[in-house]
Design a binder for these strands. Structure first.
Lengths: 242, 242
DNA sequence: CGCCGTCTTGAGATTCCTCAATATAGGTGG
DNA sequence: CCACCTATATTGAGGAATCTCAAGACGGCG
């Protein structure tokens, strides 16, 4: 259930022949790791879904700072601003080889007129993404780097993780800089934290791939409060009022 | 064009009589400042829109830290998880008196079957919100408190600002803590920055309301780089590579 | 007119970033 | 198959931004 057309949210709830029809109208494209799928600022002409592979959506500020907005997995809609004839707000780059489906926005819009369910499916994906963003916002506002990092990795694990003999592997390269861009931190800081976890055998790297040997241990980072002292706090961040 | 039913995005593009019909089916409710519209965790039974007034959407972490996800203005859809029979992910609290419209999710769903345009309107709002969130994520990752604060205020200004004799006023109370929760900072830090701006006559407060006397000046904070030294940087945040 | 919720402001602690030098891995061409 | 080369990662030192904690001032409301 990791890839293939059967998990495309956009098609959910459609009668099989309708789904097949919509699918037939998609443009299929093979993409390779590091290939740019679209670029921020371009007019968004079609709605995208990965049938397989993975991609990252990122933004670059005028000053060159990067933010990874999201890692996209197969079945998720991206580039949906096309429906509204807007511009892509992010760069999309494949992080592993795969197959991309595209629906020209015009086509999809007319299709929706007959099958409103498709619009629901888009709404579903957007809601899910919005929720993800809210979570990240909360994290970024309140959590220290270590927690954010742990959470980011756990998310990657259960979105893309593949069980192997000695741990869960993220099937595409995720560099220190990528993680930094994902959690709003910097390469050196991420490197230090990850190094520590490597020494404790919680994670490992095997040819550019991240392998989480002990998922539990990483998750535990979130619970063992960094402050062992049971000193009651009355923070202006509103952390724990008594 | 600040409130009233004519700016409800949900109704955009509908034939007048259809819009009127949908509007007729809404439940109207008068709400008062500080009134809770719904709470995070509740099953989302209806989709909401303000006809007038304003509300804030916020989350509270288990530890008590707060985040303001968004200030909602009249015409914007909120509580849309209802369409998917989910739970409200945030608390919604009115920040000023106003009128709230609600459509039970069931009703709206069947309406959409005949009028897919309504689904588009929802998608439009969700896309817009997603974009807002991406912007905030970028800010939170890369910008110092001062910039985030300036941007937050400018956003409030052009979303809710009302021109008065001596500046633009935000027509509902926005406390230091609120601003802190909005930009991922703390009350004392926000207070200090704002104090400085008050002394420079850029902003002011008149009975719990924020008044921006010199919008330009606040905007200028974003451009005058905090680092006056033209020292070339090669940061790991990827700020300016040459 | 007094009280309670908000702000202000100070001082110190701390996390994390910045800058920079080196080490490493993995892919490549001989 | 090995040595090389380049992109990445490691690590150290220092400093800055901002958070914490805490005490007092303020101001709007009842």
């Amino acid at each position: 259930m990791r890839d293939g057309v059967e998990t495309i949210g956009l098609l959910a709830g459609l009668a099989p022949e309708i789904a097949a029809d919509l699918l037939r109208q998609a443009q299929r494209r093979t993409v390779h790791a590091d290939e740019v799928l679209f670029t921020a600022g371009q007019p968004a002409r079609s709605v995208h879904v990965l049938a397989s592979g993975a991609a990252k959506l990122m933004q670059t500020t005028p000053k060159g700072a990067r933010v990874i907005v999201k890692y996209v997995r197969p079945g998720e809609v991206f580039g949906s601003p096309a429906l509204l004839d807007r511009f892509y707000p992010v760069d999309a780059v494949a992080v592993m080889d795969g197959v991309e489906l595209q629906w020209p926005s015009e086509l999809l819009r007319t299709f929706i007129d007959r099958q409103p369910r498709v619009a629901f499916n888009v709404i579903h994906d957007l809601e899910t993404r919005l929720r993800e963003m809210e979570d990240r916002l909360r994290d970024l506002s309140n959590e220290p780097v270590e927690h954010r990092l742990a959470r980011a990795i756990l998310k990657l694990v259960d979105t893309f993780g593949r069980q192997t003999d000695d741990g869960v592997e993220i099937p595409f390269p995720v560099g220190r800089q990528d993680l930094a861009d994902l959690i709003g931190s910097t390469l050196p800081t991420v490197s230090r934290t990850l190094r520590a976890w490597e020494t404790q055998r919680q994670i490992r790297r095997s040819r550019r791939r991240l392998v989480i040997a002990d998922v539990e241990a990483v998750a535990r980072v979130l619970y063992q409060d960094t402050a062992p002292e049971p000193k009651p706090r009355r923070s202006h961040r509103r952390a724990a009022r008594r």
